[in-house]
Computed example of a mutant assay.
Amino acid sequence: MRVNRILLSSSLIVVALVIQVSVLARLHLPGAVPDLLLLTVLGLALVYGHVGGALVGFAAGLLVDLAPPADHAAGRYALVLCVIGYLAGLVKPESGQVKSATGPMVVVVAAALGSTLLYAGVGALVGDTAARHVGLGGLLFTAALYDLLLAPFVVPGVMALARRAENDPLAETSSTAKAGDVSSGWISGGTGLRIGGQRSGLRMKAARARMARAGRIKGVKRL
């Protein structure tokens, strides 16, 4: 199961990063850039929980920090996505299935705002003042808007793939075999009861026949 998580998370993160760098970043939309990688981390965190979400977020953020054309300090976005993945994993549904789209949409908006604020805050600590020149208010609004519009096409699909990867075919096969053993046990037990019942019925009939014969013999002697 852990191998499935690693393989699926790595594949989704690489695909999301390639699409974001090669397609979304070149759209030149006003304000922020749609964060496909953030939505991928959110979808995985809502299935894997807070620990898995933090690990996936850290790995995804570190890949962004090292991938060209990175223009910020390494580890900055890794810290942001690690915190966001951990917090998103805390609201993982107990049943593992989301009953309505309201919860994930709220998580997406909160993650978009929180990641932008946290990224700007970490940048201010290391001397990066780019967010002040661009306008933090515009970045927050456009980041939440773009991610919210993109989320219905990304988050449900990522969650569905993560749930499917969680199902272990070996475990299903063993459980099916156990169920077959139990059912065969019930069948054999039922057959034994039937055979035993038939034998007891034959014995009762034989005993009744003997008693009837004895009664007849006694009656003849009396006569």
Rank of each mutant, 00 (worst) to 15 (best):
L81M: 15
G57P: 07
Q20P: 06
N4P: 00
R2Q: 07
L17A: 08
A144E: 07
L202C: 01
A171F: 14
S100Q: 07
S184M: 15
R210S: 12
A16F: 06
G85W: 06
D35Q: 13
S175G: 02
A45D: 04
R199Y: 08
T116S: 15
R213V: 12
E94G: 12
K99Y: 12
L7A: 14
A143I: 04
A207S: 11
L7S: 11
A143L: 02
T40H: 02
A130K: 01
R208Q: 13
P68V: 08
K178Y: 13
L161W: 11
R216C: 01
D147R: 06
A25G: 05
T40W: 06
A214G: 00
T129H: 11
S115M: 07
A165H: 02
G189N: 12
S175D: 14
L63A: 11
G96C: 04
P34I: 12
V126G: 00
L145I: 05
A110N: 01
M159K: 03
L37A: 10
R5G: 05
R203K: 12
I195S: 07
R163S: 06
D128S: 10
G215E: 13
E94W: 01
M105H: 05
V98P: 02
L202M: 12
L66E: 02
L63I: 08
R26T: 10
I217K: 12
L44T: 08
Y146P: 04
G53M: 08
G49A: 08
K99R: 15
L79T: 15
